[in-house]
Computed example of a mutant assay.
Amino acid sequence: MSDTPEKHIKPAVKTALEMGPIFAFFAGYIALRDHVFTIAGTEYSGFIVMTALFIPILAASTFVLWRLTGRLSAMQIMTLVLVVVFGGLTIWLNDERFFKMKPTMIYLMFGGILGVGLLRSKSYLSLVLGEVMPLDVEGWRKLEFRMMLFFFGLAIANEAIWRTMTTDTWVKFKTFGLPIAMLAFFMAQSGLMARHSTEVADEDTPE
């Protein structure tokens, strides 16, 4: 899917498709968290029911995003796969812990991929974000190292929160905490991006 030329869509539409399923899960969980549903003789909590609804919602939004843009990032594809796998285990075993582990697996996987890239002196991140953030080789190396640590930190945070705090706290952390942490991380890298931007070098070069 990544080989298809990307079509441009409005940023608001892209953001809605990417974040919509997450906020839908949050709203649905808040509405159903105090309910227990009996299906085929088995009782399911509101969390389990919303997990079952979240899977097709995310799949549909991902499909629409692909149809509109002509491509999906590796992160979007892996996220969908892990949601299906861990969401499916959650429903099948009627155990919400599996879905709570899903962000941990995602961030460990991304952190591991960046770590492998650093060891091999290959910039995997630049393949995904190169057009958005044109950086020199040193800039990508520094950013990838920081992102690797950041992803590992998010994995640790997710494990600590779901294992020691309430489901309500974890849902709020997943819905609001993780996106805010991601935004804060990239804002904190503004200095690095400015110092290592290749656009600056191009503008300073006489025609």
Rank of each mutant, 00 (worst) to 15 (best):
G41F: 02
V171Y: 03
S61V: 03
R120T: 13
P21Q: 01
G112V: 06
F150M: 06
H8C: 06
G115L: 13
L149D: 01
K14F: 09
L108E: 04
F110A: 12
I57A: 15
A52I: 13
A16K: 07
H35A: 12
E96P: 03
F54Q: 01
T169F: 08
V171M: 07
A188V: 08
M133G: 01
M182N: 05
A24W: 07
L68Q: 14
A157K: 03
V64A: 06
I39Q: 07
A157N: 07
L65P: 09
L17N: 00
L58M: 13
F63L: 15
V64F: 12
D136R: 08
I57L: 15
G115K: 08
R33H: 12
A74L: 15
A188S: 15
T198R: 04
M78Q: 12
L80S: 04
E199L: 11
V49E: 05
L125K: 05
M187Q: 13
D202L: 11
W66V: 02
A12S: 14
L108V: 10
R141N: 07
D3F: 10
L80Q: 04
R97T: 14
S45E: 07
D95Y: 07
T15H: 06
N158S: 15
R71N: 13
G20R: 07
G139R: 04
I161Y: 06
T79H: 05
T198L: 11
G115D: 07
L119S: 14
R67M: 11
